[in-house]
Design a protein around this nucleic acid. Sequence first.
DNA 1: TTTTGAGTTGTTCGA
DNA 2: GTCGAACAACTCAAA
Length: 464
Amino acid sequence: MPNPQIVLFRQDLRVHDHAALVAAAAAGSVLPLFVLDDDTPGKWRTGSAGRWWLHHSVAALAAALQSLGARLVLLRGRAGPLVARLADELGAQVHAIKLHEPWAAIQEAEIGERLTLHPGQTLSSPPAVLTKSGGRFRVFSPFWRALQEQMPPAPPKPAPKRLTMADHAPAGDLLEDWGLLPTHPNWAAEFADHWSPGEEGGRATLDRFTGLVAGYAEGRNLPAEPRTSALSPHLHWGEVSAAEVWHRVAAAAEPDIAEPFLREIGWRDFAIQALDAEPSSPDTPLSPKFARFPHRDDSAGLRAWQRGLTGYPIVDAGMRQLWRTGWMHNRVRMIASSFLVKHLLVDWRRGSEWFWDTLVDADLANNTLGWQWIMGSGYDAQPFFRIFEPVAQGRRHDPTGAYVRRWVPELAALPDSVIHAPWEASPLELEQAGVRLGETYPERVVEHGAARRRALEALGQLSV
DNA sequence: TTTTGAGTTGTTCGA
DNA sequence: GTCGAACAACTCAAA
């Protein structure tokens, strides 16, 4: 009997296109393992919404493995020493898909020589496409050009037909005992209306999107319409591989039609390699001068933002969509995050922490890149004078107000002309809509013009 | 080494 | 209402 092969699942909760699972199955009997490790990642342990997703995704993976003849073993604790000890006890090899988050590198080092790493998190492997002089790209466009030269990625591997479960596998924990789901209160009550965690749900989401690729470039900025892929949580947890997404989308449309979406998958690679190169970036601005930025310690403003009570309808709609569904449309993420850091001057890390805890697709690389980008302190950051104007953004991307009406129902009866700026409504319009500013819906926490001037002044100080 | 062109997602102002 | 220019200076990547 050959040695047992431990397959350590982490952010690759799938059985298709899983190089580590395939290699293990070919080498002997298999012990699939998932470790709930809240220790190694420290502050960036899986957040609350992510835990809801993780619960269901682990259950789905266990069922998929069961149908192949294996049992997913669940353990809790610091993964490195725990896996190393189990491998020693069983005389096992360990297989895993290489991840590029800083905590993953620590786990991999702690498991040590028993571990064989396989590619699979990113489109290219290693994730860092390099410049002609061997350096890392810090600007997306040249990165994307170089990445495209490596495409297509390797074709997805089929799932193993049959697994032989290793002898002497520990019983492990019960998923229900991990307490990943919220109870009092159950703030995730609506999540299941919007999401189907797990590989099957991910593939169904991908199937649906292949019919929408052609309209993606035009429709992706309209938050009222379901025209984005909604693949982000499935990609974060690796329920479908980036390579499979690439192949399916590329097959669904002509190259120039598919490119706007494939670029976004390229951004995911860019974010992952950026975090790999800059492991402190979740906590530290990449541009050192931003350490001097005069953040305001505005706990009331932060709370208004978190609860969707800023008085700016597009911002509030986004923040409430996030709270209710664990997700926010990408266009609105930009508007809402810009509002926090530019209009309120709150430290971008307070925003990234909130997103980390509330997004079902919370991903350390994407979250970090996004917040540093909007702040202007990161790789390929936007110019400092680019301050989103929430009313103009709302009118441009939600012209009928359908998105605001859905998530901010107390404004639903306002006419289109003022739905994004209720303070511009006439007394009669307000009365007919049943809106009393300051009572049924808040006054603006800041006025745009004044907030913009204040932000420009604060940012201007950095250049002195 | 130096030079050159370019750089996800925008807003405001004045003609 | 529409349009183009200005908004800093810097860094990156390649020639």
